[in-house]
């Protein structure tokens, strides 16, 4: 990397200050029977930032994402989204409200093409009903063209033109992940939740994915909350990191602060009990 560009980038990094809160979770507790998955966790996600949620296995990260997504309903606590306290919500309602996500295990329609899969991301924005769409005429057609334009923009953005017409099941894992990101992007979300977007990828695919995540954040100003295990990736791309351990929040701050936090080091490396 050139020093020139590095300087530019670094100064840009320093300039990244986020004041407006997009979403905050307050005192969220969630238990499955006797297991406390989340124990009064509070943190906020500010508009425009890349927010990482990290923690050892079973720390409650995915549960947290599922709570935000409306898939789980917390036993206690509240979620404030875009300034208003959110009532209990189904996942489709939260999708309507501008929250899109990807999954830890790829959840695509394997027999459908990349294009069609990404098109399903537009589902919440389609206004014509089933019958209109089946007719594929007049307003329904115009609407489809409009959606298709957005989908094509996503395809262009993710550089997956070559697999536009390829059934997703035939694609390698790394590309499937990219298609899934594409589907989430097609919904033009305000908040994008990524559940381990880089799990199981080789280093080249990881680099690609990092670049896309940063580009999404940069070009569209999309707020991103991601769960990731690869620490170097997390430290490199996120603005702030929240650390969970056994359902509790143990640290929250910039990557540097979190890195030097003793509690986090203990949680990750283990601590001797003598």
């Amino acid at each position: 990397m050139t020093t020139m560009v590095e300087e530019t980038q670094t100064s840009a990094a320093q300039a990244r200050v986020f004041n407006e809160t997009l979403l905050s979770v307050d005192d969220i507790s969630l238990s499955f029977g006797g297991v406390k998955a989340l124990d009064s966790v509070s943190f906020d996600i500010r508009k425009g930032e890349v927010r990482a949620i990290i923690g050892p296995n079973g720390a409650g990260k995915s549960s947290m994402l599922n709570v935000i997504n409306g898939f789980y309903h917390p036993n206690e606590g509240s979620i404030t989204y875009k300034g208003t306290k959110r009532p209990e919500m189904r996942p489709d309602q939260s999708a309507q409200s501008g929250i899109a996500r990807t999954f830890q295990n790829i959840a695509l329609f394997r027999g459908m093409t990349t294009l069609d899969n990404i098109m399903t991301g537009r589902n919440t924005k389609m206004h014509r009903n089933f019958l209109w769409q089946a007719l594929h005429w007049g307003p329904a057609k115009a609407e489809e063209l409009e959606h298709r334009t957005i989908v094509e923009n996503v395809i262009d953005f993710l550089e997956i033109q070559a697999i536009r017409k390829t059934p997703v099941g035939r694609l390698p894992y790394g590309l499937q992940k990219r298609v899934e990101l594409g589907r989430a992007l097609a919904a033009e979300p305000d908040l994008l939740l990524l559940d381990e977007p880089m799990a199981g990828m080789n280093s080249e695919e990881k680099e690609d994915m990092c670049r896309f995540i940063l580009d999404v954040n940069d070009e569209f100003g999309t707020t991103i909350a991601l769960i990731e295990h690869d620490m170097s990736v997390v430290m490199d791309i996120s603005d702030r990191v929240v650390v969970l351990d056994y359902g509790r929040k143990i640290a929250d701050g910039t990557p540097d602060e979190v890195r030097s936090n003793q509690g986090v080091i203990d949680a990750y490396l283990g601590v001797s009990h003598d």
């Binding site: 590095e6 840009a12 990094a13 990092c210 940063l214 490199d236 996120s238 603005d239």
Partner: peptide, 13 residues
């Protein structure tokens, strides 16, 4: 300081 350097990085290419 480091975090944003990667954005334009050829290392991400």
């Amino acid at each position: 300081m480091q975090s944003r350097c990667m954005k334009s990085g050829s290392s991400w290419r």
